[in-house]
Computed example of a mutant assay.
Amino acid sequence: MDIFVVTGTHFSQPYTVTSYHADERVADVAATDLVNLLRADLDPETLPPVDASNWRLGLVAAQCRRLAIQGIDVGDIDHDAFADTAGFDVWVEKVEARGLSALAVDDRELATVVAALRGHQRRTCPPDLLDIATNGGAYVPLTDDEIDGLCERLSCGTLTPQDVNVVVELDGGLVEGIVADRPIKVRVVDYDVEGADPDGLVLVPQDKGDSIPAAASGWGVDSICVDAEWITRLDAAIASEN
């Protein structure tokens, strides 16, 4: 999943404004708002608001105006030092969020999320919300201490996706079962198709070259196959053997 990070600095403010968005168009709108704020604070008469399609040009025009006010010749400035010399900048970075999920919220949305968690913590959860909190009974609800920790991580910006632990059980070269520490879906692809029924094969795309026939199956690891404790014991046995 791609996350778009919008960052802006202001010529009269020491702090940096940052927001996170799951949609590039929404990120462009957020960047446009920052640029228009800069233009309005700098010179609203000669720098009217711009739209989301040309916020980058609007930013450059504002930086040139700032340099002109300071009596600095634009031609004397290296391109890489343009923003630093002007004293402000706005930029959008696309980052890949690895893991099961990613939280992309601005400060206002984050405040609502934390408030909802605190409200959930302070009163008995009604059945409909409990079903959501447990993903239909797949998870054990968070304890008060765990909610405290989650709120702290959210507020501090240290929420990171956890690793997924998956165990594939084989017997005679055949997949007999898959165990995970949370509900997931696993696809098993077997390229050993000798003697297999051609009607049961699929063409699996390859990074390079044509697709290759293979036997493919999907495993839905639901609540029955979720056993984090067993995986922990397996890891301990592997560690002791090593």
Rank of each mutant, 00 (worst) to 15 (best):
D80K: 06
V164N: 03
G157R: 03
L100R: 15
A138S: 12
G195N: 00
R56Q: 10
E169W: 12
A239R: 09
D192N: 07
A52P: 05
Q206R: 12
C125Q: 03
N242S: 14
P198S: 07
A27N: 09
D51E: 08
V188K: 07
D144Q: 07
A228V: 12
R122S: 14
L110F: 11
L154V: 02
I238A: 04
A97D: 02
L67C: 01
D43A: 06
A116D: 10
L130I: 00
G136I: 03
V202W: 03
G136V: 00
L57W: 10
D41Y: 08
D144W: 07
R182N: 00
R39A: 01
W55Y: 12
A104K: 09
D235A: 15
P161S: 10
V193R: 00
L159E: 11
I132Q: 09
L100H: 09
L154K: 06
V175I: 12
A111K: 14
D28E: 06
L130H: 01
V26N: 11
D41T: 08
D148S: 01
A83S: 10
T160E: 13
A83T: 00
E93I: 04
A52I: 05
A116M: 13
L100I: 09
P14F: 05
D199P: 02
D28I: 07
E176Q: 08
V113H: 05
S19G: 08
G220W: 13
M1K: 15
S223W: 08
V92C: 07
G99C: 05
N165C: 08
H79V: 15
D41R: 13
A31G: 11
D89T: 06
D222V: 03
P205F: 04
V113R: 05
Y15N: 15
Q162L: 08
C125S: 10
A102W: 06
H79T: 15
L38C: 15
C125H: 07
D73E: 06
W230H: 11
P127S: 04
V92W: 03
E194N: 07
R233V: 14
H21M: 03
G173Q: 05
I72Y: 09
P126Y: 04
R65W: 01
W91K: 07
A138H: 12
D190S: 04
S101W: 12
D235E: 13
G137V: 07
A214C: 03
L174G: 04
